[in-house]
């Protein structure tokens, strides 16, 4: 898949809550094919404080409308600057980057598990799975009911299960506490979220011999495999999250 550097136009900047927003972007030309799990590198504004690009998972792609979306958490100066973008503004993007989630085998029982901002790549994955004849279960975890995002969007693509840490919506606790994990026998789990969450899910999958892929979010500079900053320890040595990942099978990781 050829990578591009392109100036993309903001079609919509939708505030979800005080910490999250959704950017819908369009290309002047035809969007390249993207795969679930892939990411983009966004140049913020070139100011000294936001010198490097920011990596974001592709949240959703709409090929017929020639747009795709990024679900972004305001975590610092860069994302805060991006949160102020308006319709019609342009941002410079390098994309599509990284590998993608693997497709499951026929008739496999699939769970998508995400927490917080980590739910971002799972919408695209759920849609992709639907298009390929799969209906996954989707387990999402948030801190509280006010933090729940995109519920209807996910619910349209599979059976949805929810946890909140304070119990204000869905089951109380972390996603790995949800009874759906004991009630069902999954063949494969695709997971993205905070590292402790992914590690807990990886432990569950190991204990139950479930195939598991996680999407990592290591700090990176280039996004194209040359700075060697975003490495993760694997059984094959240190690998770049940006090119060998961001999606890894947990058997490859030293977790």
């Amino acid at each position: 898949m050829t990578k591009r550097i392109e100036s993309l136009r903001v079609v919509e900047n939708k505030k979800i809550n005080k910490d999250y927003f959704l950017l819908r972007l369009t290309s002047q030309g035809k969007l390249p094919e993207m795969k679930p799990g892939q990411f983009v590198q966004v140049k913020v504004d070139g100011s000294p404080e936001t010198f490097l690009r920011r990596p974001f998972s592709v949240h959703d792609v709409n090929y017929s409308g020639n747009t795709f979306r990024l679900l972004i958490q305001i975590a610092g100066k860069g994302t805060e600057t991006l949160s102020r973008l308006s319709t019609g503004d342009s941002i410079n993007v390098i994309y599509p980057l990284g590998n993608s989630f693997s497709l499951p085998e026929k008739n496999e029982n699939i769970l998508l598990a995400g927490g917080g901002c980590g739910i971002a790549p799972l919408l695209f994955l759920a849609r992709y799975l639907n298009e390929n004849g799969f209906t996954p279960d989707i387990l999402l975890g948030f801190r509280s009911s006010e933090r729940v995002m995109e519920y209807d969007e996910y619910a349209a693509l599979g059976r949805i299960f929810l946890t909140t840490e304070d119990g204000s919506m869905g089951k109380k606790g972390f996603i790995t506490d949800h009874p759906v994990l004991t009630a069902n026998r999954y063949d494969v789990v695709y997971c993205c979220g905070p590292e402790p969450m992914m590690k807990a899910m990886a432990a569950y999958c190991r204990a139950n011999s479930v195939r598991c892929e996680v999407s990592l979010e290591n700090l990176m500079a280039c996004g194209i495999g040359v700075c060697l900053c975003c490495t993760v320890e694997t059984v094959r040595g240190n690998l770049c999250t940006c090119t060998e990942g961001p999606v890894f099978n947990i058997n490859d990781l030293k977790w």
């Binding site: 010198f51 290591n218 500079a221 975003c230 490495t231 320890e233």
Partner: peptide, 18 residues
Amino acid sequence: GNPYPRMAETPAGMLNSV
């Protein structure tokens, strides 16, 4: 190479310890 994290963004630059 060195353990992760190997990179930090700094004003108008970056640190690396690859």
